[in-house]
Design a protein around this nucleic acid. Sequence first.
RNA 1: GGAGGGGUCGCAUAGUGGCCGAGUGCGCCGGUUUGCUAAACCGGUAUAUGGUUGUAAAGCCAUAUCGAGGGUUCGAAUCCCUCCCCCUCCGCCA
Length: 424
Amino acid sequence: MLEIKYLRENPNLVRKALTDRGGRSIPDFERILQKDKDWRSVLTELDQLRARRNKAADEIGRLKREKVDASSLLKEMDELKSRQKNLEEKERPLKSDIGNLLLSLPNLPDASVPFGKTPEDNQVVREVGKVTPKGFPAKDHHDLGTRLGILDFEFAAQLSGAGFAVYKGAGARLERSIANFMIDLHTKEHGYKEMATPFIVTAQTMTNTGQLPKFEEDLYKTSEDNLFLIPTSEVTLTNLFRDKVLTAEELPIAMTSLTPCFRREAGSYGKDTRGLIRNHQFTKVELVRACRLEDSLKELEILTGHAEEVLKRLEIPYRVVALCTADLGFAAAKTYDLEVWMPGENRWREISSCSTCTDFQARRMNFKVKGAAKEREWGCTLNGSGLAVGRTLAAILENNQEADGSIRIPKVLQSYFGSDKISI
RNA sequence: GGAGGGGUCGCAUAGUGGCCGAGUGCGCCGGUUUGCUAAACCGGUAUAUGGUUGUAAAGCCAUAUCGAGGGUUCGAAUCCCUCCCCCUCCGCCA
């Protein structure tokens, strides 16, 4: 959430930032400004009226105690009350409209975010690892996994419909190995605290991180209880900072968790329907950090580095991409995507998205930091995949395939997996 | 699912219509005393919004907030209604 005061005082900056993002939030923004103006004028009048009423009520109490007649004041009170009721009926909807509109405005891009209008304008920051051509036609992970009997999409479709996967035997074991390796790396070497959180949460929790109110159609919802399935554990991990006031010395705080993620993918039917790339359910290791606002960008580099380390150790070539203004997610002020090379598809695929949300989520969930001079400021939250497990498995299959269709298991996974290859 | 109890200022509590934005204890901050620490004593200690003064730091005025939202009343922490959350017991159950 953006601060109404900031919008009021810097309308042109905000207008430009929202325009750079390219969304359709400008009309909402203009409506906020207008309603805010109306609201303030109503509120000023209302406050004065309330002040008068409070005084009169005290006075009446005093007169009654002294057994003095108060009928003229009581009469005035009648009139004040009806005027007040009138104004309150104007004030209430204005206030709630402004609140709702504010909740639907995205975060403002950081100054260092490249300007752009489409994902084409994203900027490659660095490429790590070498993309070396196989000496044979590379298969994609769908074919590899199916032929090895470790992935079964037909079975999954029978169980749940399109967009799901069944992992079988070595496939299931490999998925678990990847997840364990990632969690161990982040907890033992990167200083993250492992958490296990609910997968089903309230609407308020979803609103705090920004999934609601705008993106309800992307979420699975339980109809009886009005609860939502998490699309990422960013939701639950970040919400752990709700209503917290932390001291600057306690920060940064780093947490990780392994959870399933549930996404309806409502806007992307027919896209990436093959394989593990875009499933309605997938597991992901999430990284969340909280820090002081001034450390936002520094922390983003650290977070991104931790996600990158996974790929380095798995020896999968990847590149780091700075998203342009138009491609930023709702809550993000700046984002680096990690993209892995997929030989079977002959293209790069996103495998992690690391963002700083600055104080955007902190405002929504009332997360503050007490500084050295005991002043309070909003906290800063960051999140990133560390990494998406299904996509990582797909990347390993494609990058480590041999001519005969068998798969080399990366060195760091061998102790988890218990062998160095998967053969036909 | 059934029955009951409860949500007050960081924590613990007091408070059943005006003297309560809210007492007390603890904690915390500042000070006095002190070789140091402790103790004792004194003072301070919520947030948000609007208006206003100021270059600013900050100040002043007003309003709102005792789980949330409505209502009754001249006046609500206190009475009524709805909702949320927590706890205990019973039932069911992995």
